[in-house]
Design a protein around this nucleic acid. Structure first.
Lengths: 399, 399
DNA sequence: CGTCTATGTCCAACTAGTGAACTCTAAGCT
DNA sequence: AGCTTAGAGTTCACTAGTTGGACATAGACG
């Protein structure tokens, strides 16, 4: 640890290399590890033995019908990670292992008006339940990823004002959960985690740059640049909901006028349908009705799509991501909303940028955020955590 | 080279570490190197000897009034880099060394209608002249950075259509210059290089995320994210000039309507002043008149600023950079344009993002691009090039 | 002028990776 | 069945390279 530039650090780096290779591939034989990592067979042999002794890796004596290949894979109980996602109306928890496998996942409704304390209590309970259900060892928890539906101050870890969970403003979610679970907790907002989730498990596999647009009560975007969440220095990157589409448009809750959100977010869109469809409509309902053919709902959704498309076109001109993934309730509308988005992008983005852009619906639906939280825990943990035989049960730090 | 993960690669990494430390600090004693790099004194001793023998580093027997410290610094002639910038109306070349010092710099007018061949000939001549003037060894050229005022296809290195140098579309500038100079040439567009230049030498020192907005015949932005130029998968990131401000605004050359450019670029703005100020006005002239107090020009510049501010507000919401640097002719207008920009940003960006944003004029003026080209050559070279005694005189690759 | 102290160098010890030789096992051929 | 073949994994001697400690050096301080 104390030798930053030499010898043993090299060994460490090679250990990580091997672990990473195995994790990415699921399972490999030693010869394959040698080939993909570029290390010599002898070195791989030593490293695998060391990892096996440390318990981070499992060697299944002979797997395929081949000659004598021993396939190496991450041992399932080497460590587990947990994803927790506080959403608009529900709480969702997932348990996964270091091999990127999701072992269990569950969600339950969350009372919007519940205090933050109640919320965290509930989260703790649900986590405990899932851990028991999967039968894993509590001490093996390597880290927790936590998603919250609002802006997080990166430096202090304090939750900014959120219209979605009003009573939670000013709390420090990571600290709260860390106090209850005793392991490192890493927070981020739901849009960023959704982006990460889709990148790792969903519609963004294999892509390095991705924008995840989440339309729900508000509109937010999570940006992944070069394989990493991009938060911006202030942590507020991705606020696509408040780019200005029409300087003299409706007044937005942010104080400006004509923000994208005023044309697309549920709270602004649903009233349009009140007189014709009644007052107790939800976005989900509108989407369902539209799919069933209701012309009014279809029109509203298409209009929303067009406006999102304008925003995406701006995003595309500025950032030129290779993929845009649409998440949130609205994604359920499929082509009804994607069509207009693509059309709008084609119209407003410069052609060379638009040509390379793919707009896809999220593949994970409401699970994107929890899975992203899982991915966050995995990535923040760094592979090096795997390498100490002892996984941290007390947290050295939390973010 | 062939050992990707081991031993000699460690040595290489340590060599680079030392070179980098020395380069950043200017000059260090061996003990200081040991402390900043974390390597042991013995290792540093060996490495310094190796570097000294290789000629990349110079050891001045005793420098300060201390005991017996030998200060180690990059030898001035260890290698030089060259920046070439083709601008709207001029060609600019700079010569620098690996210690980030600019040894010589010169610009000359360039005929817009000249063929690309003529342009590259002129560039070659100017480079030769500067090399002779500084008296450095041609064989020491480690790389060339090249700026072109138009979109470059990252894969093929082909220059896309540019309204600024019409005859150059479809040429491969890097290849052209590589053919003439025989060293690796790395191209990028002028906005990206301006961003890099300001980041390394100008108003962006010490910042990791920066947007450089260049207003000239068009409007472009160069983005630096996490200390690196961000080009986007298609290489067209930063096209701030074509985000839509007004869906029913003037038709833009890109085919859309109401692009930022139609409110801010010279070709759209100058006509506004034709009836009052004559037809042979340039953007530079407008700026000068505005500074002298001409109310019409002041008004025009303030309006341009407001529109740029709207674009920057969008940029700020999406990307949340910590700094925006304004370059190009317009930057000369100082507060006359920055005031309205800041005002517009304050109005249209979400407050939490706007609060962290600093909008500054470029510190390098027209030199930003050449210096950025220099920085590009330095960064693309990678420190490892320093480590072979022989700097490449024939190029293994060019980008 | 002697002592002190930080610098740089040398040397022996140690760590860790590598190539080559070797063993093992199953598949394929005769 | 028996032989050959070939890829997988292991062992071993070797080598590259870093480190801690001993040692020499030379200005600073008293």
């Amino acid at each position: 640890m104390e030798t930053p530039g030499s010898q043993s650090s090299l060994h460490r780096a090679n250990l990580e290399r091997v672990v990473r290779a195995v994790r990415l591939a699921g399972s490999l034989t030693q010869a394959e590890i040698a080939r993909t990592t570029g290390l010599s067979a002898a070195t791989v042999s030593n490293i695998v033995r060391e990892l096996k002794d440390g318990g981070t890796v499992e060697v299944t004596p002979t797997s395929a019908g081949g000659r004598r290949a021993r396939s190496v894979s991450l041992s399932g109980d080497a460590g587990i990670v947990i994803g927790v996602d506080f959403g608009h109306t529900h709480l969702r928890v997932a348990v996964g292992n270091l091999a990127h496998q999701v072992l269990a996942e569950e969600s339950e409704p969350l009372d919007v008006d519940a205090s933050s304390t109640q919320g965290f209590d509930r989260a703790e309970q649900l986590v405990s339940r899932l851990i028991e259900a999967t039968g894993v060892d509590r001490a093996k928890i390597a880290g927790v990823g936590l998603g919250v539906p609002g802006p997080i101050d990166v430096e202090t870890g304090t939750l900014g004002s959120t219209a979605i969970l009003p009573g939670w403003t000013g709390t420090r979610p990571a600290e709260e959960l860390h106090g209850r679970l005793g392991v490192p907790v890493h927070v981020d907002n739901d849009a960023n985690l959704g982006a990460l989730g889709e990148l790792v498990w969903g519609s963004g596999r294999g892509v390095r740059d991705l924008a995840y647009i989440k339309v729900a009560s508000g509109v937010g975007a999570g940006l992944v640049i070069n394989g990493q969440i991009y938060r911006g220095p202030g942590g507020t990157a991705g606020e696509i909901g408040h780019i200005t589409l029409d300087e003299s448009g409706p007044v937005c809750r942010c104080g400006n006028r004509g923000c994208l959100e005023t044309f697309t977010a549920a709270r602004y869109v649903l009233p349009l349908l009140q007189s014709s469809h009644g007052t107790d409509l939800t976005m989900e309902g509108v989407v369902r009705l539209a799919r069933d053919g209701d012309p009014g709902c279809r029109r509203v959704i298409a209009d929303v799509g067009r406006h999102i498309g304008s925003g995406v076109a701006n995003l595309c001109n500025l950032l030129n991501p290779s993929r845009v993934v649409l998440g949130g309730d609205l994604a359920e509308a499929g082509e009804l909303v994607l069509g207009p988005i693509r059309e709008s992008v084609g119209r407003y983005a410069i052609p060379s940028a638009a040509r390379r852009l793919t707009v896809l619906p999220g593949a994970l639906g409401g699970r994107a955020e929890v899975l992203g939280a899982l991915a966050l825990a995995l990535s923040e943990m760094g592979d090096s955590t795997l390498l100490d035989g002892t996984l941290p049960t007390a947290a050295p730090a939390f973010t």
